[in-house]
Protein backbone atom coordinates (compact mmCIF):
# COMPACT_ATOMS: atom_id res chain seq x y z
CA UNK A 1 0.00 0.00 0.00
CA UNK A 2 1.27 3.36 -0.97
CA UNK A 3 0.43 6.43 1.02
CA UNK A 4 -1.97 8.80 -0.60
CA UNK A 5 -0.25 12.00 0.40
CA UNK A 6 3.40 12.91 0.38
CA UNK A 7 3.96 16.30 1.92
CA UNK A 8 7.25 16.19 3.65
CA UNK A 9 10.57 14.47 3.34
CA UNK A 10 9.81 11.77 5.96
CA UNK A 11 6.73 10.67 4.05
CA UNK A 12 9.02 9.54 1.26
CA UNK A 13 11.69 8.08 3.51
CA UNK A 14 9.15 5.88 5.25
CA UNK A 15 7.74 4.53 2.01
CA UNK A 16 9.30 1.27 0.90
CA UNK A 17 8.20 1.63 -2.68
CA UNK A 18 9.85 5.03 -2.90
CA UNK A 19 13.10 3.71 -1.45
CA UNK A 20 13.15 0.95 -4.06
CA UNK A 21 12.65 3.42 -6.82
CA UNK A 22 15.23 5.86 -5.47
CA UNK A 23 17.81 3.11 -5.28
CA UNK A 24 17.20 2.52 -8.97
CA UNK A 25 16.41 -1.11 -8.48
CA UNK A 26 14.17 -0.95 -11.57
CA UNK A 27 11.10 -2.57 -10.15
CA UNK A 28 7.47 -2.08 -11.01
CA UNK A 29 7.66 1.05 -8.88
CA UNK A 30 9.22 3.07 -11.68
CA UNK A 31 6.01 3.65 -13.58
CA UNK A 32 4.15 4.68 -10.48
CA UNK A 33 6.73 7.23 -9.39
CA UNK A 34 7.24 8.70 -12.83
CA UNK A 35 3.52 9.20 -13.14
CA UNK A 36 3.37 10.60 -9.64
CA UNK A 37 5.97 13.21 -10.50
CA UNK A 38 4.06 14.21 -13.60
CA UNK A 39 0.91 14.69 -11.56
CA UNK A 40 2.69 16.60 -8.81
CA UNK A 41 4.99 19.09 -10.53
CA UNK A 42 5.04 21.27 -7.41
CA UNK A 43 6.74 18.48 -5.49
CA UNK A 44 9.53 17.67 -7.92
CA UNK A 45 12.09 19.54 -5.86
CA UNK A 46 11.06 17.68 -2.71
CA UNK A 47 11.10 14.29 -4.38
CA UNK A 48 14.52 14.92 -5.89
CA UNK A 49 15.85 15.80 -2.46
CA UNK A 50 14.28 12.71 -0.96
CA UNK A 51 15.78 10.60 -3.73
CA UNK A 52 19.23 12.03 -3.09
CA UNK A 53 18.78 11.38 0.61
CA UNK A 54 18.05 7.71 -0.07
CA UNK A 55 20.77 7.25 -2.66
CA UNK A 56 23.31 9.00 -0.50
CA UNK A 57 26.95 9.53 -1.19
CA UNK A 58 29.05 6.73 -2.69
CA UNK A 59 31.73 6.31 -0.08
CA UNK A 60 34.40 3.69 -0.22
CA UNK A 61 35.35 2.93 3.39
CA UNK A 62 39.01 2.34 4.15
CA UNK A 63 39.93 -1.31 4.44
CA UNK A 64 41.25 -2.39 7.83
CA UNK A 65 43.89 -5.09 7.28
CA UNK A 66 42.84 -8.42 8.74
CA UNK A 67 46.25 -8.71 10.47
CA UNK A 68 45.49 -5.55 12.39
CA UNK A 69 42.17 -6.96 13.59
CA UNK A 70 43.76 -10.29 14.51
CA UNK A 71 46.53 -8.67 16.49
CA UNK A 72 44.10 -6.36 18.31
CA UNK A 73 41.96 -9.36 19.21
CA UNK A 74 45.00 -11.25 20.44
CA UNK A 75 45.89 -8.32 22.66
CA UNK A 76 42.36 -8.16 24.06
CA UNK A 77 42.29 -11.85 24.84
CA UNK A 78 45.62 -11.80 26.63
CA UNK A 79 44.53 -8.80 28.69
CA UNK A 80 41.38 -10.61 29.77
CA UNK A 81 43.41 -13.71 30.67
CA UNK A 82 45.95 -11.71 32.61
CA UNK A 83 43.21 -10.05 34.55
CA UNK A 84 41.41 -13.23 35.48
CA UNK A 85 44.75 -14.78 36.53
CA UNK A 86 45.21 -11.88 38.88
CA UNK A 87 41.78 -12.43 40.35
CA UNK A 88 42.46 -16.10 40.83
CA UNK A 89 45.70 -15.22 42.56
CA UNK A 90 43.82 -13.05 45.02
CA UNK A 91 41.50 -15.90 45.88
CA UNK A 92 44.38 -18.29 46.24
CA UNK A 93 46.04 -15.91 48.67
CA UNK A 94 43.19 -16.34 51.14
CA UNK A 95 43.63 -20.09 50.91
CA UNK A 96 47.34 -19.83 51.51
CA UNK A 97 46.68 -17.99 54.76
CA UNK A 98 44.07 -20.54 55.71
CA UNK A 99 46.41 -23.39 54.94
CA UNK A 100 49.25 -21.77 56.88
CA UNK A 101 47.16 -21.32 60.01
CA UNK A 102 45.83 -24.85 59.69
CA UNK A 103 49.38 -26.18 59.60
CA UNK A 104 50.32 -24.31 62.73
CA UNK A 105 47.33 -25.53 64.70
CA UNK A 106 47.47 -29.09 63.47
CA UNK A 107 44.87 -31.21 61.81
CA UNK A 108 42.97 -32.09 64.98
CA UNK A 109 41.51 -28.69 65.41
CA UNK A 110 40.13 -28.52 61.86
CA UNK A 111 36.54 -27.77 62.75
CA UNK A 112 37.58 -24.93 64.96
CA UNK A 113 39.97 -23.72 62.32
CA UNK A 114 37.43 -23.73 59.56
CA UNK A 115 35.03 -21.75 61.71
CA UNK A 116 37.79 -19.36 62.56
CA UNK A 117 38.71 -19.01 58.95
CA UNK A 118 35.18 -18.39 57.86
CA UNK A 119 35.25 -15.34 55.75
CA UNK A 120 32.58 -12.75 56.23
CA UNK A 121 31.16 -11.19 53.16
CA UNK A 122 29.18 -7.98 52.92
CA UNK A 123 27.50 -7.15 49.66
CA UNK A 124 25.54 -3.98 49.11
CA UNK A 125 23.00 -3.71 46.33
CA UNK A 126 22.39 -0.67 44.17
CA UNK A 127 21.13 2.18 46.32
CA UNK A 128 22.19 0.46 49.54
CA UNK A 129 24.85 1.51 52.02
CA UNK A 130 26.30 -0.18 55.03
CA UNK A 131 28.67 0.54 57.89
CA UNK A 132 30.71 -2.42 59.02
CA UNK A 133 32.85 -2.85 62.06
CA UNK A 134 35.93 -4.92 61.46
CA UNK A 135 37.31 -7.36 64.05
CA UNK A 136 39.89 -4.78 65.20
CA UNK A 137 37.28 -2.04 65.68
CA UNK A 138 38.09 -0.25 62.43
CA UNK A 139 35.06 1.11 60.63
CA UNK A 140 34.20 0.65 56.98
CA UNK A 141 31.50 2.51 55.11
CA UNK A 142 30.59 0.40 52.14
CA UNK A 143 29.14 2.27 49.19
CA UNK A 144 26.35 0.97 46.97
CA UNK A 145 26.98 -2.01 44.69
CA UNK A 146 30.16 -3.05 46.47
CA UNK A 147 31.60 -6.11 48.07
CA UNK A 148 33.81 -6.46 51.13
CA UNK A 149 35.30 -9.70 52.37
CA UNK A 150 37.46 -10.47 55.34
CA UNK A 151 38.32 -13.28 57.70
CA UNK A 152 36.11 -13.33 60.76
CA UNK A 153 38.79 -13.34 63.38
CA UNK A 154 42.01 -11.44 63.24
CA UNK A 155 45.08 -12.66 65.12
CA UNK A 156 47.33 -10.19 66.90
CA UNK A 157 50.46 -9.57 64.91
CA UNK A 158 48.90 -10.88 61.73
CA UNK A 159 48.35 -8.36 58.96
CA UNK A 160 44.75 -7.23 58.85
CA UNK A 161 43.42 -7.79 55.38
CA UNK A 162 40.17 -7.08 53.57
CA UNK A 163 39.20 -7.69 49.98
CA UNK A 164 37.26 -4.99 48.22
CA UNK A 165 35.41 -4.62 44.97
CA UNK A 166 33.51 -1.38 44.58
CA UNK A 167 33.96 1.56 46.90
CA UNK A 168 34.53 1.91 50.62
CA UNK A 169 35.79 4.42 53.12
CA UNK A 170 38.05 3.09 55.85
CA UNK A 171 38.65 4.51 59.28
CA UNK A 172 41.38 2.30 60.57
CA UNK A 173 42.23 1.85 64.23
CA UNK A 174 45.88 2.45 64.95
CA UNK A 175 47.77 -0.54 66.26
CA UNK A 176 50.94 0.13 68.17
CA UNK A 177 52.24 -3.28 67.40
CA UNK A 178 54.51 -3.13 64.39
CA UNK A 179 53.54 -5.64 61.75
CA UNK A 180 49.84 -5.31 62.24
CA UNK A 181 49.56 -3.46 59.01
CA UNK A 182 46.12 -2.99 57.52
CA UNK A 183 45.67 -4.05 53.95
CA UNK A 184 42.92 -3.48 51.42
CA UNK A 185 43.26 -5.79 48.46
CA UNK A 186 41.59 -4.84 45.19
CA UNK A 187 41.91 -6.40 41.74
CA UNK A 188 44.31 -3.61 40.84
CA UNK A 189 46.46 -2.88 43.85
CA UNK A 190 46.99 -3.33 47.58
CA UNK A 191 46.65 -0.43 49.96
CA UNK A 192 48.64 -0.78 53.12
CA UNK A 193 48.28 1.47 56.13
CA UNK A 194 49.04 1.84 59.78
CA UNK A 195 45.92 3.57 61.04
CA UNK A 196 44.42 6.31 59.04
CA UNK A 197 41.32 7.15 57.06
CA UNK A 198 41.10 6.71 53.36
CA UNK A 199 38.74 5.93 50.52
CA UNK A 200 39.21 3.10 48.04
CA UNK A 201 37.25 3.08 44.83
CA UNK A 202 37.80 -0.01 42.73
CA UNK A 203 35.44 -0.49 39.84
CA UNK A 204 35.89 -1.69 36.29
CA UNK A 205 38.67 0.33 34.85
CA UNK A 206 40.90 1.23 37.75
CA UNK A 207 41.27 1.72 41.47
CA UNK A 208 41.27 5.17 42.98
CA UNK A 209 42.60 5.75 46.47
CA UNK A 210 41.98 8.93 48.41
CA UNK A 211 43.88 9.51 51.61
CA UNK A 212 42.18 11.71 54.17
CA UNK A 213 44.50 11.33 57.10
CA UNK A 214 47.67 9.49 58.01
CA UNK A 215 49.99 7.75 55.62
CA UNK A 216 49.48 4.83 53.27
CA UNK A 217 51.63 2.65 51.12
CA UNK A 218 50.40 1.46 47.75
CA UNK A 219 51.66 -1.86 46.52
CA UNK A 220 51.33 -1.80 42.76
CA UNK A 221 52.79 -5.23 42.17
CA UNK A 222 56.09 -4.22 40.69
CA UNK A 223 56.63 -1.07 42.68
CA UNK A 224 55.54 0.81 45.75
CA UNK A 225 54.43 4.38 46.25
CA UNK A 226 53.52 6.40 49.32
CA UNK A 227 50.64 8.80 49.71
CA UNK A 228 50.23 11.93 51.81
CA UNK A 229 46.91 13.27 53.16
CA UNK A 230 44.83 14.84 50.39
CA UNK A 231 46.42 12.70 47.68
CA UNK A 232 44.25 10.93 45.18
CA UNK A 233 45.94 8.20 43.17
CA UNK A 234 44.30 6.26 40.36
CA UNK A 235 45.98 3.09 39.24
CA UNK A 236 45.11 0.70 36.46
CA UNK A 237 46.56 -2.79 36.67
CA UNK A 238 45.65 -3.34 33.07
CA UNK A 239 47.78 -0.47 31.93
CA UNK A 240 50.27 -1.23 34.69
CA UNK A 241 50.60 2.40 35.58
CA UNK A 242 49.30 5.24 37.68
CA UNK A 243 46.83 6.94 35.41
CA UNK A 244 46.21 9.96 37.56
CA UNK A 245 47.73 11.51 40.64
CA UNK A 246 46.55 14.73 42.17
CA UNK A 247 45.91 16.57 45.39
CA UNK A 248 42.44 17.66 46.32
CA UNK A 249 42.25 21.17 47.59
CA UNK A 250 38.56 21.92 47.32
CA UNK A 251 36.24 20.26 49.75
CA UNK A 252 33.79 19.76 46.91
CA UNK A 253 36.04 17.19 45.32
CA UNK A 254 36.45 15.18 48.47
CA UNK A 255 36.06 11.62 47.24
CA UNK A 256 34.86 10.41 50.62
CA UNK A 257 32.00 12.92 50.91
CA UNK A 258 29.58 10.09 50.25
CA UNK A 259 30.23 8.73 53.74
CA UNK A 260 28.43 11.78 55.12
CA UNK A 261 25.28 10.46 53.47
CA UNK A 262 25.28 12.85 50.56
CA UNK A 263 26.48 12.79 47.02
CA UNK A 264 28.05 16.18 46.83
CA UNK A 265 29.24 17.36 43.45
CA UNK A 266 30.05 21.00 42.96
CA UNK A 267 30.61 22.38 39.50
CA UNK A 268 30.70 18.88 38.07
CA UNK A 269 29.96 17.96 34.49
CA UNK A 270 26.55 16.39 34.04
CA UNK A 271 28.43 13.52 32.44
CA UNK A 272 30.26 12.76 35.69
CA UNK A 273 27.11 13.12 37.76
CA UNK A 274 25.38 10.58 35.52
CA UNK A 275 28.29 8.15 35.74
CA UNK A 276 28.16 8.36 39.52
CA UNK A 277 24.41 7.75 39.65
CA UNK A 278 24.68 4.87 37.20
CA UNK A 279 27.32 3.34 39.43
CA UNK A 280 25.36 3.73 42.64
CA UNK A 281 21.86 2.89 41.45
CA UNK A 282 22.61 0.59 38.52
CA UNK A 283 20.44 2.66 36.27
CA UNK A 284 21.03 3.73 32.73
CA UNK A 285 20.72 7.44 32.14
CA UNK A 286 19.71 8.63 28.73
CA UNK A 287 19.45 12.23 27.68
CA UNK A 288 17.34 13.82 25.05
CA UNK A 289 19.91 16.43 24.27
CA UNK A 290 23.52 15.43 24.49
CA UNK A 291 24.65 19.00 25.02
CA UNK A 292 23.78 18.62 28.67
CA UNK A 293 26.79 16.33 29.20
CA UNK A 294 29.30 19.14 29.23
CA UNK A 295 27.21 21.54 31.27
CA UNK A 296 28.25 22.08 34.86
CA UNK A 297 26.01 21.52 37.84
CA UNK A 298 26.23 21.58 41.57
CA UNK A 299 24.14 18.88 43.13
CA UNK A 300 23.74 17.65 46.64
CA UNK A 301 21.82 14.41 46.74
CA UNK A 302 20.95 12.41 49.83
CA UNK A 303 22.04 8.82 49.56
CA UNK A 304 18.54 7.47 49.72
CA UNK A 305 16.32 5.40 47.50
CA UNK A 306 16.13 6.41 43.87
CA UNK A 307 12.48 7.51 44.25
CA UNK A 308 13.63 10.18 46.68
CA UNK A 309 16.67 11.22 44.70
CA UNK A 310 14.99 11.66 41.31
CA UNK A 311 12.76 14.65 42.23
CA UNK A 312 15.71 16.39 43.90
CA UNK A 313 17.79 15.84 40.81
CA UNK A 314 15.00 17.25 38.67
CA UNK A 315 14.91 20.40 40.75
CA UNK A 316 18.64 20.97 41.01
CA UNK A 317 19.38 20.29 37.34
CA UNK A 318 16.15 21.87 36.11
CA UNK A 319 15.26 18.85 34.00
CA UNK A 320 12.34 16.50 33.67
CA UNK A 321 13.07 12.87 34.41
CA UNK A 322 10.96 9.96 33.31
CA UNK A 323 11.76 6.64 34.88
CA UNK A 324 11.21 3.38 33.09
CA UNK A 325 12.43 0.45 35.18
CA UNK A 326 16.18 0.84 35.27
CA UNK A 327 16.30 3.69 32.79
CA UNK A 328 16.11 7.38 33.48
CA UNK A 329 15.28 9.66 30.59
CA UNK A 330 16.25 13.29 31.02
CA UNK A 331 14.53 16.04 29.10
Amino acid sequence: MKRTSFNQIEDFLECESFIHWAQELNGRENIFWEQWMECNPDKIELIEDAKALVKGIPFEPREIPSEQIASALFQLNSRIDRRSDRNKMRKRRAWVIAAAIALILGATSWTWVSELLNTVEYITDYGEWQTIELPDGSLVSLNAHSELKFIKKWEDGEPRQVWLEGEAFFDVVKMLDVGTAFKVITPDLDVEVLGTSFNVHSRGEQTKVYLQEGKVKLDLGDHITYMDPGDVVSYSARKEKIVDRRRTDAESLNPSAWTQGVINMKGAYAFDIFEKLEEIYGVEIRVKNEEIYTREYSVQLPMKKLEIVVPILERSMKVKITRKDQMLLLE
Partner: peptide, 23 residues
Protein backbone atom coordinates in the same frame (compact mmCIF):
# COMPACT_ATOMS: atom_id res chain seq x y z
CA UNK B 1 39.15 24.81 26.41
CA UNK B 2 36.56 22.65 28.09
CA UNK B 3 34.66 25.75 29.08
CA UNK B 4 34.75 27.13 25.57
CA UNK B 5 33.53 24.05 23.74
CA UNK B 6 31.24 21.15 24.29
CA UNK B 7 32.89 17.77 23.96
CA UNK B 8 30.53 17.08 21.11
CA UNK B 9 32.14 19.79 19.06
CA UNK B 10 35.41 17.89 19.17
CA UNK B 11 34.01 15.68 16.45
CA UNK B 12 35.31 17.23 13.26
CA UNK B 13 35.18 14.53 10.62
CA UNK B 14 37.11 15.15 7.42
CA UNK B 15 36.69 13.16 4.24
CA UNK B 16 39.42 12.54 1.74
CA UNK B 17 39.29 12.04 -2.01
CA UNK B 18 40.31 8.39 -1.87
CA UNK B 19 37.24 7.61 0.21
CA UNK B 20 34.89 8.57 -2.59
CA UNK B 21 34.03 5.74 -4.91
CA UNK B 22 35.76 6.06 -8.24
CA UNK B 23 33.56 6.43 -11.25
Amino acid sequence: KRMAQYADQLVDIQFSVDEIMVR
